[in-house]
Amino acid sequence: MPADPHLADMIRLSLARRRGLVEKRMFGGICWMLNGNMLCGIAKDSFMFRVGRELEAEALARPGTRIMDFTGKPMRGFVLVDPDAAEDAGLEAWIAFAARYVAALPPKAPKALSGRGKG
Rank of each mutant, 00 (worst) to 15 (best):
H6W: 04
I67K: 13
E23I: 03
G20L: 12
L7Q: 01
K118W: 10
A3D: 01
A112H: 08
A85E: 01
L21P: 02
A93L: 09
K118E: 08
G72P: 07
K24C: 02
G119N: 13
A61M: 11
D82E: 15
A109D: 08
E92I: 05
E23M: 05
K73A: 14
E58W: 06
L80C: 12
A86I: 04
G29L: 01
R50A: 03
M75N: 15
G29E: 01
V22F: 13
A16C: 12
G64S: 10
G115V: 01
K24W: 05
V22M: 14
A96W: 08
K44Y: 07
E92Q: 13
D84T: 12
F27D: 02
D82K: 10
K44T: 07
R100S: 12
A109F: 05
R66Q: 15
V81E: 03
S14V: 05
G52N: 06
G20T: 10
M1D: 12
M38N: 03
A103M: 12
L13H: 15
M75H: 15
I42V: 14
L105C: 07
F78C: 15
E56S: 05
M48R: 09
P110V: 02
F97L: 09
E92M: 07
D82L: 11
S14H: 09
D69A: 14
I67N: 04
P110M: 03
K24L: 11
L7H: 01
G115E: 10
R62N: 12
P107W: 08
W32C: 08
G72F: 09
A59S: 04
E54F: 06
L105V: 05
D84V: 10
R66T: 14
P83R: 08
A57H: 11
G117D: 00
A89I: 02
C40H: 03
M48S: 12
R19F: 13
G115N: 07
P5V: 00
M75P: 09
R53F: 01
L39N: 00
G41M: 02
P2Q: 11
M75A: 15
E87C: 03
E23T: 02
A61R: 14
P106H: 09
I30N: 00
G77L: 07
F27Y: 12
A8H: 02
I42D: 00
R62A: 14
A98H: 03
M10L: 15
L13S: 13
L15M: 10
K24R: 15
A99N: 11
I11V: 15
I95Y: 04
A103W: 06
L7W: 04
M26A: 10
V79G: 05
S114W: 02
I67H: 08
P63W: 11
A89W: 02
R25G: 12
L15K: 01
V79Q: 03
M68E: 12
K44N: 07
A93G: 06
G119W: 11
L21Q: 09
E56N: 06
G36P: 02
N37P: 02
G20H: 13
